[in-house]
Design a protein around this nucleic acid. Structure first.
Length: 773
DNA sequence: GTAAGAAAAATTTTT
DNA sequence: TTTTTCTTAC
């Protein structure tokens, strides 16, 4: 082993690595060598005599875990690195839950429900109870249940909590508590855990079985947690429990990069670390090795506008570099062209390959237009996100078959494929099965196995179809334990006719579906080979399934070698870096998202998201915003994001665009107008007034009329349906009071105070408001 | 019971 | 715009 690796570290990094006697928090600014510290720390622990199997290292993504493992393997060798407990929270604790299945009430091979399984289960529960999905929106229920689980509130605890019950009654969803209970019962019956369960059930396991907890407390001599700012309460408590005795724990994170609160992440975990671990040492990694001084300073000036944060001074000793270039364009289409031009220019300079560049956006929907322009311009690109490989219909179908074969209680899988490929078992029949199952308090599979016993009211033809289906699944399931996963999967795909179904015509889509299935089978094959290399004689299908359900698209980047521009959301870009970064769509209501501008906490998170975006850039950063954007089927007029103003202008450069060839004649005077607006933009001191004023003052009204009949002005109105002071009810936000109604862009808006949920500005045509007396 | 076609609705981030 | 749900005709 190379003992000199500590020399690669700067002073604060080295201190962070060498402190192993107690709890520590490492505040790792963007680009400060966080991964290096983590990997070296693990290597250091190994040299200090900690066996690899006594080190628990938790990451946020599979990719991060894999990369870190590789880097550690380079230092200490693969044979040692292999035994580290390193992975995502979800994968590590699903492993523990499987190992300890005897204590959990679930089987060793429990199924993992993904969010679409959860959602469809919730929908069936609502349907069975005859509840209107307008009163009980499935999405809202799902997120409430998820929040409850993330905060370790079991259905039993929920039912007796007066605050929740009162709150639900106020939101007009008093049955939520019961739905939550039913949801959990049904998951249990299906021998399935959803993502949140993996953390919740781990906590339940540790609470109910101190001897099991004790075992893992002993096992894990040292615990490391990456991306600590993104942990939720369930994760916090698991770590706290595991580290209780020895408190040899090191968490690494950056509060400035906390961007997952919508998933339950609690930034207070990192801000209040000392409350949980009183003697914790705090190390700050403040030198940024990634970006130019300009980029670092610009990002600093931005994040400085947030209130909740840990004091730190991020600095760079790299060159000053180029200013961040603002690209003001008229349309989203033009934005794509401008970005494309810059990409081609950088590429032509020979200093940048395509793979050195990334385009980051707030929402996936923005990728389409970029894709179009890149195709036209012949720029190779790769899109991350959107529909992941495992989310494709044909793949989900194959997985559903595999799931059902491994676990006949998996009702979501069963419902998905009982009539796919079509075999004459329609909705009515499934309805009868479900009803029968409910009445007898058993699972659908049980009913399917004993059609006669349960007197399912179906005719002979249907009964025989049901039996055929039942027998087919049963035949496969008998082979699960004795057959190699790959062989069984091939059997399933062949015998069920899934391949034919996918390839029913010769369209490109059809061929691609077929290829996807083949690709999937190949993945199973690889899985088997890997397992066999590790010495497992018979890798079975259920093993593969427990792996695959925790994989995401990030884990399946096949051609990372090829020279392509990366297109992804800012969220997906966390942890990555590129020589040049284009942040597009920096407009109000898009970035920051319109859903998050009324709540200060959420707005700060949006700002952190922008901070993450900027700090991905090593050398060049471009920020673009369009005046108009095609969104949700129509053209919207946009104003530049308030966040642009948060950046100290000394780090910015405005585009001095020459007339691009593609620019239409009617936009000829645009540059002048933009110039005016820029001046206005920065001389403006009254934040509130800036954008609406700028709009009316600097747009020649005549011109606007030519483009769109509607005006950009915000006009305060007196809406007869919702006069000021009216109490209204909103699906998501509950009861609120109308503060103001207005018309802007021809859209009727209302500003409504929802109390705890904050003041929201809603478009009346979207928000289905009901007046309450 | 099925499939296509029409109408309506929803538009964020994801382990 | 895309996706989901509803309707209608086979």
């Amino acid at each position: 082993m190379n003992f000199n690796f500590l020399n690669d570290l700067n002073e604060s990094q080295r201190q962070a690595v060498e402190y192993i006697d107690g709890a520590s928090l490492v505040i790792a600014g963007a680009g400060s060598g966080k991964t290096r510290v983590l990997t070296y720390k693990i290597a250091y622990l190994l040299t200090k005599g900690f066996p690899p199997s006594s080190i628990l290292a938790l990451t946020f993504t599979n990719k991060a875990a894999r990369e870190m493992k590789e880097r550690i393997a380079q230092i200490v060798g693969e044979r040692t690195a292999r035994y580290l407990w390193m992975g995502t929270f979800h994968s590590i604790f699903s492993r523990i839950l499987r190992n300890e299945a005897q204590y959990t009430g679930y089987s060793k091979n429990f199924t993992i429900y993904d969010s679409s399984d959860s959602s469809s289960l919730i929908k069936s529960i609502l349907k069975e109870r005859n509840l209107d999905t307008k009163v009980y929106p499935p999405g809202l229920i799902q997120s409430r249940i998820s929040t409850a689980k993330n905060n370790l509130i079991t259905p039993e605890a929920y039912a007796v909590n007066i605050d929740f019950i009162k709150n639900d009654r106020q939101s007009r969803i008093p049955l939520l508590s019961e739905i939550y209970q039913t949801y959990c019962n049904r998951c249990k019956q299906a021998d399935a855990m959803d993502f949140d369960d993996l953390l919740l059930q781990t906590n339940v396991l540790f609470r109910n079985h101190p001897e099991v907890l004790e075992k893992y407390q002993q096992l894990f001599q040292f615990i490391l947690v990456d991306e600590y700012q993104d942990t939720n309460f369930a994760q916090y408590l698991i770590i706290k429990k595991l580290a209780e005795h020895h408190e040899r724990i090191c968490v690494v994170g950056d509060d400035a990069q906390s961007i997952y609160s919508f998933r339950g992440a609690n930034i207070d975990n990192i801000l209040q670390f000392r409350n949980a671990y009183h003697d914790a040492r705090i190390f700050k990694l403040e030198q940024n090795y990634r970006s130019t001084q300009t980029i670092v300073n610009a990002a600093n000036s931005l994040i400085d506008k947030n209130r909740a944060q840990i004091q730190k001074t991020i600095f760079s000793e790299k060159e000053i570099g180029h200013p961040i270039k603002l690209l003001s364009v008229f349309t989203d289409y033009e934005e794509g062209m401008t970005v494309a031009e810059h990409i081609l220019e950088l590429y032509a300079s020979n200093n940048y390959r395509y793979a050195d560049m990334a385009v980051l956006y707030r929402t996936n929907a923005q990728s389409r237009i970029l894709e179009e322009t890149f195709r036209k311009q012949g720029i190779p690109y790769r899109i991350y996100g959107g529909l992941s490989f495992y989310q494709r219909k044909e793949i989900k179908d194959v997985i559903a078959y595999c799931r059902l074969v491994c676990n006949q209680n998996d009702e979501e899988a069963l419902k998905r494929i009982i009539n796919f490929p079509a075999r004459g078992i329609g909705e009515t029949t499934v309805g009868k099965l479900v009803e029968c199952a409910q009445n007898n308090n058993v699972g659908i599979w049980e009913v399917l196995t004993n059609l006669n016993k349960y007197n399912v009211p179906v005719n002979a033809g249907t009964a025989s179809k049901l039996n055929d289906f039942h027998n087919m699944i049963e035949t496969f399931s008998k082979e699960v334990e004795i057959k190699n996963a790959y062989e069984l999967a091939v059997d399933i795909v062949k015998n069920t006719g899934l391949l034919n179904e996918a390839n029913f015509d010769h369209s490109t889509e059809s061929i691609s579906r077929k290829e996807n299935i083949e690709e999937f089978l190949k993945a199973i094959h690889e899985f088997c080979e890997n397992k066999q290399e590790e010495g497992e004689s018979l890798p079975i299908l259920s093993d593969f399934l427990s792996d695959v359900s925790l994989l995401t698209d990030q884990d399946t980047d096949k051609d990372s070698m090829s020279d392509k521009v990366t297109l992804m959301t800012v969220h997906a870009a966390k942890g990555l870096e590129f020589k040049a970064v284009f942040i597009v769509g920096m407009e109000e209501e898009l970035f920051p998202s319109m859903f998050r501008i009324t709540n200060e906490r959420e707005l700060e998170e949006e700002r952190r998201l922008f901070y993450v975006a900027i700090t991905r850039a090593k050398e060049r950063c471009f920020i673009s915003y369009a005046k108009s954007r095609f969104r949700n089927g129509k053209t919207n007029f946009c104003t530049p994001s308030r966040f642009i103003k948060d950046i100290d202008p000394q780090f910015l450069e405005f585009s001095q665009e020459k007339e691009p060839a593609f620019q239409k004649k009617k936009y000829m005077n645009w540059d002048d107008e933009v110039e005016n607006e820029r001046n206005r933009f920065y001389s403006e001191t009254n934040e509130k007034e800036t954008y609406s004023e700028a709009q009316t003052t600097h747009f020649a009204p005549r011109k606007l009329k030519k483009l769109d009949q509607s005006s950009d002005e915000k006009i305060i109105t007196d809406n007869s349906s919702f006069p000021v002071g009216t109490m209204v009810k909103h699906q998501l936000f509950g009861i609120g009071k109308v503060l103001e109604t207005s018309i802007s862009n021809g859209n009727e808006k209302a500003s409504i105070d929802f109390g705890e949920k904050g003041v929201k500005s809603l478009l009346l045509k979207f928000a289905k408001l009901e007046v309450v007396k």
